[in-house]
Nucleic acid binder design. Structure first.
Lengths: 113, 113
DNA sequence: CAAAAATACAACCAACTAGTTGTACAATGT
DNA sequence: ACATTGTACAACTAGTTGGTTGTATTTTTG
């Protein structure tokens, strides 16, 4: 069961590991934008921006809905939260380490065999 | 000033976009491990694991300290938190969008020119 | 219907990744 | 002294990424 989760984590982190895609996320979390409206902001071809949008969509970070001839992209905040959640789990591992160190220090005072 | 931040974000997300590296992070956040102790857990060459550790180190997600002939790696929870913080900022953009929608809905009741 | 706009997709390319093997070197154990 | 252990690094390879251009399809607009 963990195999798919890891695939999804790979896709999510990879999608966010590009500044153009993070910038697109900032925009589409704030509202709906057509692919060409997004593309107008960047100094690269329309096709390049379209591919970035496709990567974000495949990772589940945004969804598209048709409106006439435009394709409106909208950010999915739940996907962003799921990534934050993975990091929180990592933090929990660290807390466990600190707890173990504390335990060692306090066990100095009491005697055991 | 934002340029370096973006470079750092690129490095952080990219470092976490690999399941082996995420697994290494889980271990080194829990305690100190030599590179060869880490490598023993994976079905790949020592050099490959060493490269993964180097990627994590360059991104600032872990630090190494020499101890005799061993190099002990330890996870940096602050770096993990900084990534979580970036995601929180993204969430805030989304909250702004919701606030704006709410504002529009409530402005139905009061009159303006 | 014809022209324009928005999108999709394929083919191509340079750069980078993730793995490999091999070599070199410092620290430790016998 | 010498073999072993832990690490570092270079060179190579196959696959992936981020960009390009070109072509095709669908939806508006004149």
């Amino acid at each position: 069961m963990a195999e798919q989760d890891e695939d999804r984590a790979d896709a999510l982190f990879h999608a966010l590991a590009d500044r153009t895609r993070r910038d697109i996320m900032r925009r589409v979390l704030g509202g709906e934008y057509s692919v060409s409206a997004l593309a107008a902001n960047y100094d690269m071809s329309f096709a390049a921006v379209q591919k970035h949008v496709a990567v974000l969509e495949k990772a589940g970070l945004l969804t598209k809905r048709r409106s006439g001839r435009e394709q409106l992209a909208s950010g999915d905040v739940e996907a962003v939260r799921s990534v934050a959640c993975m990091l929180t789990e990592l933090e929990q591992v660290w807390r466990g380490r600190i707890a173990r160190i504390d335990e060692l220090l306090t066990s100095d005072t009491d005697q055991e065999n």
